[in-house]
Design a protein around this nucleic acid. Structure first.
Length: 275
DNA sequence: AAAGACACCTGTCCGC
DNA sequence: TGCGGACAGGTGTCTT
């Protein structure tokens, strides 16, 4: 479920429950995520107080300080990961791979059926970690705008949809919001990135920001249920104009929404409105 | 440097 | 009801 809005929703959901808490134990039931959870992570983290929960791209960064160590847990939810705050003694289900148990009797529980997620530890600045060091700008900051897209697109002949999903260009635009923002901007997803005008890139940047911000805001309304519920904000669905709506009538022109595959990912667009 | 294919893994849904 | 295949919100890595 996690695109950037879901990760940000998860961050906001867990932060008040973990910031300031001391880690008394880390239980790793299944270390085989995308990369193995380092065997040393449990003892590195244990005894630390989680100072803050930050987000960079779709990574969550849990800065922690302790008697002997200072470090940051780097957490990614992959395709199917989710986080909950549970009572530490609550029995674990099949895909509950990690519990980070705090001194208040609660635990941060990582669930991830497909195991594409990751949990790593670094003692250095996490932003210089190899996974994070070459990422593009955050979409919701001033560092990201149409001019940035236009400059980056010079000479690029690949589909604009792949271009905006490239983490070196801008982070956090996943498969759903790529289709949605291109629809709003009226740009055909297969158009070569280098052949999108500066003016249209400006519109695209605005729409990327808007759709992500709206989704975060909508996620915010489920925040209340997040810690006790299943963390599934599937309720964006009715806000979506094109994603997973093949054959439906376009809201603007009533043409049938099309589904095509670009870069091995499903892509949805209106053949009339997007050029 | 850029673009495309492939890999990782489990669950669900659809057609027969 | 069972079975096979397609598909799923991500992204690092390897080849061209």
């Amino acid at each position: 479920m996690p695109e950037l809005p879901e990760v940000e929703t998860a961050r906001r959901g867990i932060a008040p429950h973990v910031e300031g808490q001391r880690v008394v134990q880390v239980v790793v039931r299944e270390p085989r995520l995308r990369w193995p959870i380092p065997a040393s992570l449990a003892r590195d983290w244990q005894g630390c107080v989680v100072e803050s929960v930050r987000r960079r791209a779709k990574y969550l960064l849990l800065d922690s300080t302790g008697g002997t160590s200072v470090g940051t847990a780097i957490l990614h939810l992959g395709m199917s990961g989710s986080l909950r705050i549970v009572d530490a003694n609550r029995p674990a289900d099949k895909h509950d791979h990690v519990d980070v148990i705090f001194n208040n009797g609660k635990a941060l529980r990582l669930t991830d059926p497909r195991r594409f997620g990751a949990l790593l530890w670094t003692r250095d600045d996490p932003l210089s970690h190899p996974l994070l060091s070459s990422l593009g700008p955050e979409p919701l900051t001033g560092a990201f705008d149409g001019q940035h897209l236009w400059r980056k697109a010079r000479g690029r002949r690949g589909a604009v949809k792949n271009f905006i999903m490239d983490n070196h260009v801008v982070v956090g635009v996943g498969n759903i919001y790529a289709s949605e923002s291109l629809f709003r901007a009226g740009i055909h997803p297969k158009r070569a990135a280098g052949r999108v005008s500066a003016v249209r890139f400006e519109a695209l940047a605005v729409h990327i920001k808007a759709v992500l911000a709206e989704a975060i805001k909508a996620g915010g309304t489920t925040l209340k249920d997040f810690v006790s519920g299943d963390g599934k904000p599937g309720y964006f669905r009715h806000e979506l104009n094109v994603y997973d709506r093949e054959g439906d009538a376009c809201e603007l022109c009533a043409s049938a929404i099309k589904r095509i595959v670009i870069g091995q990912r499903a892509s949805y667009y209106c053949p009339q409105c997007q050029r």
